[in-house]
Design a protein around this nucleic acid. Structure first.
Lengths: 342, 342
DNA sequence: TTGTACGCGTTATCAC
DNA sequence: GTGATAACGCGTACAA
């Protein structure tokens, strides 16, 4: 026994493998990647040397030679709620299938976003960016740089591909459904921060149907906590709305808690709706009427689109919208038994 | 006007910058990284050229020359629940502060974990690995490779650093508290899958205090859904326990839903406890008695420890345990008013 | 089928 | 202060 199978010195190079196998580095490379012909016997020797030396090609070396990183980046604001986490799951899964690693960047509470994004852009072959996570001029810079880019839930930017779920149409359907329940005074809890983002589109859709009967109410952010705080004030004040349409499920969950705290039965005293259909929406009491958005699919499609863009697919559609589904549960008002409910 | 400020061809090299600035690449490098002396006037010229050409050093080139990736990896099973997402948040935040990108790898439902981990290991300077995400021999291989490694919530492996929150002690405290409520028949919902992991330690702690009075009950996984399903059977069957100690908050949340479904008031008919103190624990009804674990801090410390290990800090402690806190809320039984509750 | 040699983009060590 | 130039580790024409 010798010490050759001891812990690899972390820096085994292709040269050492070549030497040990008694061949050239070109042959080692060919044997390993299956490019070009290699005699069976030779491949055997190479493989053995690779095993013994625990050789793994240096990623930096490969990247430099190949001219690619085999990695995708993704920029999101935070991972506190289920939404971004779910999209990330779909993104990572597909990217992984396509042989690409995923480098993440969270911008929430970050100062030097521009530099961080540049740094990230430099180590990936393509980037997925959520709307409102990066300043507009930084996005423009990315577009101009030619880096394959997919904007998720973004208002859209000339030259960049955009991917999002539909908002306006289901928002209108949701509003119409609430009208069907007989509600007449509405609030939209979680008023949009930026024009053109997902929440803004939902708000526009809702207002298109309800007109002056709906009032926008801001929340500090789109979280359960913030929804709870804002709903406490909204529902506790005079002129309480009959129905509260929330920007998303988390805000709605907070609103349910606020209603309970105030002793207001949902949906009898106040109706509520969310958006996204996160796991907890089904488990809330009452179960949350919401709009299901294919979160994982959003991430998955982003990864796939990026792969195509990287491969050189110029003909990529500039804009893609995923379907959503109105999910009627108990929080929006009483329904005849036996209907819907999932 | 000329076309020089058009979109950078994505492949601007240091040579082009040097040529445009009328200096050598060495000078460009020095000017950019502040290493070595550069005349002010020269620096000026270089910077201008850099701006005009939108030059960003190739990450692969830098990595190869520097011999490091400036990136950390992290391996987790999934991101469906808040637990791993929270740890990841803390990890990414600190890594980012330390100038390191974060490359993620999810192993849930993945076949070729070994290859994926190798691939990941090849593109980072250090790796954080959650327990039970990677086969033991793969961990051994990583340790042997000399790659800086932090095992999170792991049973421990000779040669690798381990970081986790305490389990046994708070588990005993929790069990004692439940005994104080007068409960006498217990179930541990979410029985451990692997010996030595977090849940196993909790189970051991609980059993140490309750002995034969507690029965382990398995769940399909540690999720709300699985907890609900298993609790439905457990609470619906004969010999229903008086108190159910759950492996974590998500399982406990599912158990609360099951109890409600069965018309069993919590905590009066059945007491429940969770673990982790995820956001939803505070909002559950009744609010969940649980053990608070510093999830983000776990990630943050992992990133910091890794940074030290990478810097060459040999004297790194082999094992580090973070404190937890028993959070008494309403789900474990009636408390005299005015006490605790957060 | 295999080996030689060059290129990938930077960093850093020397001379000047 | 500045400029050649040798690594860094690998992929791959091209030659043999």
């Amino acid at each position: 026994m010798d010490g050759r199978d001891a812990p690899a010195p972390a820096g085994v190079t292709i040269y050492e493998v070549a030497q040990r196998a008694g061949v050239s580095i070109a042959t080692v490379s060919r044997a390993l990647r299956g490019t070009g012909p290699v005699a069976d016997a030779t491949r055997e020797k190479v493989m053995r040397a690779v095993e013994e030396l625990r050789f793994t090609p240096s990623r930096a070396g490969v990247s430099l030679a190949e001219g690619r990183h085999a990695a995708n980046g993704i920029v999101f604001p935070n991972l506190s709620g289920p939404y971004f986490a779910e999209v990330l799951i779909g993104y990572e899964e597909v990217a992984s299938e396509l042989g690409r690693s995923v480098v993440i960047l969270s911008t929430k509470g970050r100062g030097a976003v521009r530099d961080l994004v540049r740094e990230l852009a430099g180590r990936v072959d393509g980037l997925a960016v959520f709307g409102s996570t990066v300043p507009g001029d930084v996005v423009d810079e990315l577009v101009a740089s030619g880096l394959p880019l997919v904007l998720i839930s973004h208002a859209g930017r000339p030259g960049a591909m955009t991917l999002r779920s539909e908002n306006a149409a289901p928002a209108r359907a949701l509003a119409a459904h609430l009208l069907g329940h007989g509600h007449r005074a509405f609030a939209f809890l979680g008023a949009p921060y930026a024009t053109g983002d997902d929440v803004d589109e939902r708000w526009q859709g809702v207002r298109g149907v309800l007109g002056g009967a709906v009032e926008p109410v801001a929340t500090a952010e789109y979280t359960v906590e913030a929804g709870y705080e804002a709903a406490l004030r909204l529902l506790g004040g005079r002129r309480r709305p009959e129905a509260v349409i929330c920007s998303d499920d988390e805000v709605a969950l907070g609103a349910i808690l606020a209603a309970e705290h105030l002793g207001l039965p949902v949906p009898h005293e106040v109706a509520l709706t969310g958006w996204d259909d996160i796991m907890a929406a089904r488990h809330a009491r009452p179960a949350l009427t919401t709009v299901r958005q294919p979160m994982r699919e959003l991430g998955a499609q982003a990864a796939r689109a990026l792969d195509r863009l990287i491969a050189g697919g110029r003909a990529e559609p500039g804009h893609r919208t995923l379907d959503t589904e109105l999910i009627i549960r108990g929080s929006c008002g009483p329904h005849p038994p036996g209907r819907s409910l999932s």
